[in-house]
Amino acid sequence: MAEPLLKVEELTKLYPGERKDSPVQAVGGVSFEVQRGEVFSIVGESGCGKTTLGRCIVRGLEASSGRVLYTPADGGTVDFLRAEKRDFKRLRKDIQLIFQDPYSSLNPRMTVFDIISEPLKANFKLSKQELEERVTAIAQKTGLNPQYLRRYPHAFSGGQRQRIGIARALVTEPQLVVCDEAVSALDVSIQAQIINLLKDLQEQLKMTYIFISHDLSVVEHVSDRVAVMYLGRIVELSPKKELFARPLHPYTESLLSAAPVPDPDGKRERILLEGEVPNPADPPTGCHFHPRCRFRTSLCETKVPELREVLPGRMAACHYGEELMLKGIDKG
């Protein structure tokens, strides 16, 4: 297999707790690889650490430990988190972020042209004409009318604002884009348009996505591989088709059982989890999921399960991953 575009190794993010000796672990030793040209999705319920992980990868937040190894097209792998100032400035344009909220992520005092052109001014030395051409080109690709570029964000709808955010992220022609809940704030009808736009742009511009979402129907539509997070850790990592057909972790099974059924007459057994999501400041011993798992044993309460290959190409952090026959989504 070719060298991955991005390799995340034991990435951890800690926040100060109520006591100095007990920090809150938002992301706990996460590792995975992202291949060139794929859509790698990270899914989980609110508070699982997926957004924090995404922002640490792009250096929007400072990771507490770990490495993010990025291999640009010209070779020469670099730890993006510890890149020297010169290297970081050169690589910054290659890894971009699309924010969740299309309202608060745009500066209301800047025109759309200024918002989209800002990354170009920061990363390239372009003439006024070159700047105009680049901004106009990406506006057209993202479905924005170039005649409206001198307007301010308040003049646009939520879907149009998200197109502005996408144009801003893609104008530097990045290799990797982290989409942080990029459609969750939009109406369902607009979501479909933005998802299709992102897929079309990926093919046109030969990009790679890390797609962060809590919506399994969106994840199923866009993904090549899926990582499921729970309480700051990846509990399952599989190709999309296999994960939806037969999950290997009980938490993934529960998430899939909650996905909407397209057929109004269709029925799916809802697997309800016991209790609440544990406090990350005081996580359970052993497997963090064991207080809510119907398959738990004494081993789960005492020993932390490693994320390991349970089936070829499929990883799960469960002591009984090989033995459990969990229910996926039946496409028949």
Rank of each mutant, 00 (worst) to 15 (best):
I166M: 12
A167P: 11
A167F: 08
R168V: 08
A169L: 05
A169T: 01
L170A: 05
L170H: 04
L170G: 07
L170C: 04
V171N: 01
T172P: 04
E173P: 03
E173W: 02
E173M: 05
E173G: 03
E173L: 09
E173S: 06
P174K: 03
P174L: 06
P174F: 08
L176A: 02
L176K: 02
L176I: 00
V177T: 15
V177F: 07
C179I: 11
C179S: 01
C179P: 04
C179F: 05
D180A: 15
D180R: 07
E181V: 03
E181N: 01
E181R: 06
A182G: 02
V183S: 00
V183P: 01
S184H: 02
A185W: 01
A185C: 08
A185Q: 02
A185N: 03
A185Y: 00
L186A: 05
L186G: 10
L186K: 08
D187V: 02
V188I: 10
V188M: 11
V188G: 09
I190N: 07
I190Y: 06
Q191V: 11
Q191E: 11
Q191N: 10
Q191F: 03
Q191S: 14
Q193T: 15
I194E: 08
I194H: 06
I194G: 04
I194T: 02
I195F: 02
I195P: 04
N196G: 07
N196A: 14
N196C: 14
L197D: 15
L198Q: 13
L198W: 09
K199W: 14
K199F: 14
K199M: 15
D200H: 15
D200S: 10
D200W: 13
L201P: 08
L201K: 06
L201E: 09
Q202Y: 14
Q202S: 10
Q202G: 05
Q202N: 13
Q202W: 12
E203P: 06
E203N: 12
E203K: 07
Q204Y: 05
Q204V: 09
L205T: 12
L205I: 13
L205K: 06
L205D: 12
K206Y: 07
K206A: 15
K206V: 01
K206Q: 12
